[in-house]
């Protein structure tokens, strides 16, 4: 499988602030890649480098096999971008903006355009100055999804959408993936990334702290286990990989490292189990772990 986006050791400084500090990112062709990080982590800066709007101060970057700075115009024929904060021309109607973006990107599919307008419930006749943030985002999304491109770069695209529209958005991304398009989806909305993404990169303070499939990342974290027991499970506390163990009568709760699950279950079975719940870590918990102690 080829690579749509590859960045290695990316550095970008603004005065004395290091917005990107050796960032790595690898997006395979045809995958939906989640690009996660808190506000100010460097997500938008990375995207601006990928779009050739900024030149990095160090590191290597390759986009669709080209140099995003030098080959910007050529590469832009093959991608569509939706900014996090969409600003549009106040006097143009939404339909005019969609068609303008579509034309400069080399034309868009009118059937798909009509279908998307319908699904996103967007009135294309309204002037952009009267659109809410969510509606401006819809304009950019419709223009992007209706374009015939290989790569979609979406920067926090659902931050202004209501839950119903988020569902429409999720369907659209799924369809794009089924058509073999690559999607780079920056977000701090975890459930969105969890449903949509094949792989994720988590960044913090301009550095990549974790990258891999969600399954890979779950190895790194703990499953939370709640059990109602018949007898005491005294051996549990001594097992390596068991954390935050609390016992309240016959009820027991603890966090278990992925590698320690088998011995824990063996120990629980020995004590006798009346009921058992085990929850995989949500991305929320992944996140919390990564940003634990990151208060700078």
């Amino acid at each position: 499988m080829s690579t749509a986006v590859r960045a290695k050791g990316l550095v970008k400084t603004f005065g004395r602030a290091r917005a990107l500090d050796g960032l790595n990112l690898s997006v395979k062709t045809g995958e939906v890649h989640g690009f996660l990080g808190p506000n100010g982590a460097g997500k938008t800066t990375t995207i601006r480098v990928l779009l050739g709007q900024m030149r990095s101060d160090g590191g290597e970057v390759e986009l669709l096999g080209g140099d995003p700075w030098r080959d910007a115009t050529e590469l832009h024929r093959r991608l569509a971008y939706v900014p996090g904060d969409v600003t549009l021309w106040p006097s143009l109607s939404g339909g005019e903006v969609i068609d303008l973006l579509g034309r400069v990107r080399g034309g868009l599919d009118p059937g798909r355009r009509a279908e998307l307008l319908d699904r996103f419930e967007l009135d294309p006749r309204k002037r952009c100055r009267t659109y809410s943030k969510g509606n401006r985002q819809k304009v950019a999304l419709v223009a992007a999804f209706a374009s015939d491109v290989e790569l979609l770069i979406l920067d926090e695209p659902t931050s202004g959408l209501d839950p119903l529209m988020e569902a429409v958005f999720n369907d659209c991304v799924q369809e794009e993936k089924n058509r073999g398009r690559t999607v780079l989806l920056s977000s701090h909305i975890l459930s969105e990334v969890e449903t949509l993404c094949d792989r994720v990169s988590i960044i913090r303070a301009g550095r990549t702290v974790e990258s891999g499939s969600l399954a890979d990342l779950r190895h790194l974290t703990r499953t939370s286990v709640t059990a109602e027991l018949v007898g005491p499970a005294g051996g549990l506390a001594r097992l390596p990989g068991v954390h935050e163990l609390t016992v309240d009568g016959d009820r027991l709760r603890c966090q278990v490292d992925g590698a320690a699950l088998t011995p824990v279950l063996t120990e629980l079975a020995r004590a006798g189990v009346r009921s058992l719940t085990s929850q995989p870590p949500t991305l929320e918990e992944l996140f919390l772990r990564h940003y634990e102690g990151s208060a700078r």
Binding site: S93, E96, R125, R127
Partner: peptide, 27 residues
């Protein structure tokens, strides 16, 4: 709030701007 007494005239549902020069002209 943010509304006016006179109705805002609706724009065209489809656009004819073909590129950056046409957009500049419009602006």
């Amino acid at each position: 709030l943010a509304g006016g007494l006179l109705p805002t005239r609706a724009g065209p549902a489809e656009g004819s701007l073909g590129g950056a020069f046409a957009l500049a002209g419009r602006l």
